[in-house]
Amino acid sequence: MKRAALTWLAVGVAALIAAALAVSLWNGLWSFLPWSAESRAEREAVRADTAEAGESARRIESQGQAEQIQRVETTHRQVIEVIDATAPVIHETRSAPDAHEPLDPERRSRVRDHQQRMCELVPATCPAD
């Protein structure tokens, strides 16, 4: 009789351990299901990461666009300055009575001054020194 009681006691303890193990693993057993708390939390984390990455991309794009606008405005200003500086000189040069004669020192000085101004406005157009 003692042996049977010990057997039932061992079975009971084993059942309690198995029940405790099953209860502790219960959430883990169902975590793969889409409606489980773990799956919802994982989806929310992915959604938050995606939103953060999207916001970062929009911020970088906005900065790049602002820089591009600044570069375009600078280039546009330079083009207008070059046209403003060049147009009168071109007209003066083409309409000068000595347009087809060799340059005198005064005219050569004006051309050199104009070229220097162009180099200041747009350094890429200057000849290499």
Rank of each mutant, 00 (worst) to 15 (best):
R107D: 09
T93P: 02
R77M: 07
R112S: 13
E92T: 04
D98T: 13
E73V: 02
V79N: 12
R94M: 07
T93E: 09
P97W: 05
I69M: 05
I69Y: 02
Q116T: 12
V111M: 14
Q116G: 06
R110L: 10
V79H: 10
P97G: 11
T86A: 15
R108M: 10
V82C: 02
D98A: 14
E81V: 04
V111Y: 15
E106I: 05
R117K: 10
D104M: 02
R94A: 09
A96G: 07
V72W: 09
T93S: 14
E81T: 12
D98S: 15
A96K: 07
V89C: 03
R77K: 12
V79T: 09
P102H: 03
V89M: 13
A87H: 06
R77L: 10
P97E: 11
T74C: 00
R108T: 04
A87F: 03
V72N: 11
P105E: 14
V79R: 15
V79M: 13
P97S: 10
H91E: 14
E81G: 07
R94E: 10
T74V: 08
E73F: 00
D98P: 03
Q116P: 00
A85D: 06
Q78L: 07
T74Q: 14
R108Y: 02
A85F: 00
D84I: 01
I83G: 00
A85Q: 05
A96L: 04
P105Q: 09
R77W: 03
M118N: 05
T75L: 11
D104C: 01
P102F: 03
M118G: 09
R107N: 09
L103M: 15
V82H: 01
I90V: 15
E106T: 09
V111D: 13
P88G: 08
E106R: 08
E73T: 06
R71N: 06
P97M: 06
E106Y: 09
V89F: 13
V82M: 12
E81I: 03
M118E: 04
E101H: 07
H76T: 14
T75D: 10
R71W: 02
P97V: 12
Q78R: 13
I90E: 03
P102K: 04
M118Q: 08
S109C: 00
R112V: 04
S109V: 02
Q116N: 09
E81D: 13
R108G: 05
S95H: 15
M118C: 04
V72I: 14
R110V: 09
R71E: 10
E101S: 14
R94I: 06
T75A: 15
M118R: 06
T86F: 05
V89A: 10
Q70V: 07
P105W: 01
T86E: 03
T86Y: 03
I80S: 07
Q116K: 10
I80A: 11
